[in-house]
Nucleic acid binder design. Structure first.
Lengths: 243, 243
DNA sequence: TTAACAGGTCAACGGTGTTGTCATAAGGTG
DNA sequence: CACCTTATGACAACACCGTTGACCTGTTAA
């Protein structure tokens, strides 16, 4: 079972399955995404996917070496969709902020897929394009290469990580989410100031902000830090000011 | 199978398994952690855990309703360990940095548990203690309450999100991780400067830093931004400088 | 001493990813 | 149009997974 998978370019004989479907990598990825969105991440299995496609599960191994391969394809498709809707303006901070928010929103729109694919390096077309774009924004802004790479890394991972985290939150069953809100309202708000002075002092703010994602705040912090660094560099020292 | 699990306090008849082991929730959690550490996250399954304990897999269902239950117990143990080893010094930035790194390290040491528990609010003792501590550090540093809460939120979520993200990476099977490294080495490094100038210009740095987690960098960016904000506040304006 | 029952065991169910083998229809060739 | 090659779909099997209903037995309290 060595060379089961044939590169897409070389495919020629489009034979339909028993149920009359003509398979393709695109169709498989699309169906997988639909399956994830409609029935949750747990609904994605080779066997279920085969059933949804009207094909024997083992047929999929003609298109993807293993499940992991399929996951990477799904991830890349998501990156592509996000990137396609992004229009950089030339203001590096604003552009990165916009892209970060879009990535985050994209993850929230496809929670299960985001959780499954957030941590993978796909090396596929869309991902490469994203890397090139982000690095371009940073280098044009004036960051020297090592700095640009470091910020690029932190930026991308932060977007992916928060996307996955917040996705996990929204993917929770209704009951579990309400239970969490309840915990905040009852447990935290009622802690006495004697034993937990800081929670008691800020409980109003804690409850107010607990619902929302902290990604925008975290993103702005990251961009603020980057801006600070850039100003230091422009000031000519090249070294962070002491503190 | 409704009331299989008996609360630990009520347990009385400690009957040894066929192989002579006396089970307990603590022993099970401990063995699970050992299993994860020694043989990777994939090695943790009810059946394998049973084998490692010298007990029938189904015995574990006398202590945990399902695998998720077990994971939460493991996570709780991890929070406890992380907090227990943290000694704040009074330097707010250094203390938060240290705590963030510890949380991240704890997650990496037990990837499966970290991924499962990152997005849950437990309201348990250890979690409450952590919230109180972090808020205390920020308020003593001089952040006004709304600001303290915002930074607290970003800090905690970032630590959890990166913990889960990087955990997912290390939880990958060996082969998949090597495949990722290979992708960087082959695909990215070889992109021609004509089509991908920014990647080509920085490929050396990209490859050098791709292995490591970007969490420390992201954490430092967050702390830098917080420090900047604090200085603005001390300068008396209370408003961020324009840019 | 004995009776109750906590808790360990067994066997089974339905699910999973994956692969070795086979069958067949599509496509190029003459 | 008929033939041959072979790409590709289908089938059956393997080893694993979490979970549960039924059973059995040693421990413990009375």
């Amino acid at each position: 079972m060595s060379d089961r998978v044939v590169p897409p370019a070389a495919r020629q004989r489009r034979r339909p399955t028993k149920q009359g479907v003509v398979l393709s990598a695109e169709l498989i990825v699309g169906t997988a995404l639909r399956l994830i969105e409609e029935h949750g991440a747990d609904a994605l299995s080779v066997r279920r996917l085969g059933r949804a496609l009207g094909a024997d599960p083992s047929s999929l191994y003609r298109y993807f070496r293993h499940t992991d391969d399929l996951m990477l394809a799904i991830a890349d498709e998501l990156i592509g969709r996000t990137l396609r809707s992004w229009r950089p303006t030339g203001d590096w901070a604003a552009d990165l902020r916009e892209l970060g928010l879009r990535m985050h929103a994209g993850a929230l729109a496809h929670p299960r897929a985001a959780m499954l694919s957030a941590h993978r390096v796909t090396g596929r077309a869309h991902e490469i394009q994203a890397v090139e774009s982000i690095l371009g924004v940073l280098r044009r802004a004036g960051f020297p290469d090592p700095e640009a790479v470091r910020i690029y890394h932190a930026f991308v991972d932060q977007a992916l990580a928060f996307g996955a985290l917040d996705s996990a939150g929204t993917a929770l069953p209704r009951a579990a989410r309400e239970a969490e809100a309840e915990v905040w309202r009852t447990t935290y708000v009622r802690l006495p100031a004697e034993t937990h002075p800081h929670i008691a002092a800020t409980s109003r703010h804690l409850v107010a902000t607990m619902r929302a994602s902290s990604y925008p705040a975290a993103l702005d912090l990251l961009l603020t830090a980057a801006r600070t660094r850039l100003e230091e560099l422009r000031a000519g020292t090249g070294h962070p000011r002491p503190h």
